[in-house]
């Protein structure tokens, strides 16, 4: 027993997601991430159930725990009712809490994710919102996406959306009392503390790398190396 394993076991997702792994590798066989990245969920689950503190710390610092897409295909097929995807979510949470997420390139991406997603939630009440989802950073939105963006009020109104309006319906402006509720929920449930962890550790890492916050965001959002890929 040790500090990392004990901490992981406090997470309900690990209590639910880890029974007794028999190392059969079915999760890895079905895993979309394992086909793309140098990733093996079977090994991750095995390290956690081994309770090897050094090996768990290495995981928390590694890119490996950030390769999963959380599709949960592994959950369906595990013959022992484990949930490797939930084990990975617990590891990610601990990696953030301990600040070790900034030790890996993929872990550092949490800075960009936190900024964009919690910004959308706390500013607009949505996880995705036209104010921040832009063709410029999402060229796959396509020529139709660019057309939607350029003609946003007309396109949405025609299909019955009520973009930014005080109304009931798609893309309405979320009322102030609901936004206030979201802000208080973030405070009460520890989301603001988690975000502080992400921002403080990321700032420290940016300083170490000699980058401004803006440069750091650009780097973690846009740049990755080929060494993560299976065929590299």
């Amino acid at each position: 027993m040790g500090k990392y394993y004990d901490k992981l076991m406090q997470d309900y997702r690990l209590k639910e997601g880890l029974n007794a792994c028999i190392n059969c590798g079915t999760c890895t066989a079905i895993c979309p991430a394992a086909e793309f990245y140098k990733y093996n969920p079977k090994n991750i689950v095995n390290i956690v159930q081994s309770k090897d503190e050094e090996a768990i710390e290495e995981l928390l610092k590694s890119d490996a725990i950030w390769y999963c897409g959380e599709c949960m295909s592994c959950v369906t097929r595990c013959p022992r009712k484990n949930a490797p995807g939930l084990v990975v979510m617990s590891l990610r949470r601990l990696s953030i809490e301990t600040g070790l997420f900034t030790e890996s390139e993929k872990g550092r991406q949490q800075y960009a994710l936190a900024k964009v997603l919690t910004g959308n939630i706390l500013d607009h009440g949505y996880c995705v919102h036209p104010a921040t989802f832009k063709y410029e950073s999402h060229p796959e939105y396509g020529t139709v996406g660019k057309w939607i963006e350029d003609n946003i009020d007309d396109v949405y109104e025609r299909v019955g959306a009520v973009y930014n309006q005080d109304a009931t319906g798609a893309l309405r402006k979320i009322p102030k009392e609901s936004m206030d509720d979201l802000h208080r929920i973030f405070e009460v449930t520890g989301a603001n503390d988690l975000l502080d962890h992400i921002y403080t550790a990321s700032k420290k890492k940016a300083d170490e790398m000699g980058l401004t916050e803006e440069e750091y965001f650009h780097q973690v959002f846009n740049i990755t190396g080929p060494e993560h890929l299976n065929n590299y």
Partner: peptide, 14 residues
């Protein structure tokens, strides 16, 4: 409002 699901599965909210 949003349920926060995308942020949850991107591991940025508890």
């Amino acid at each position: 409002t949003t349920c926060g699901g995308i942020a949850y599965h991107s591991d940025v909210i508890p």
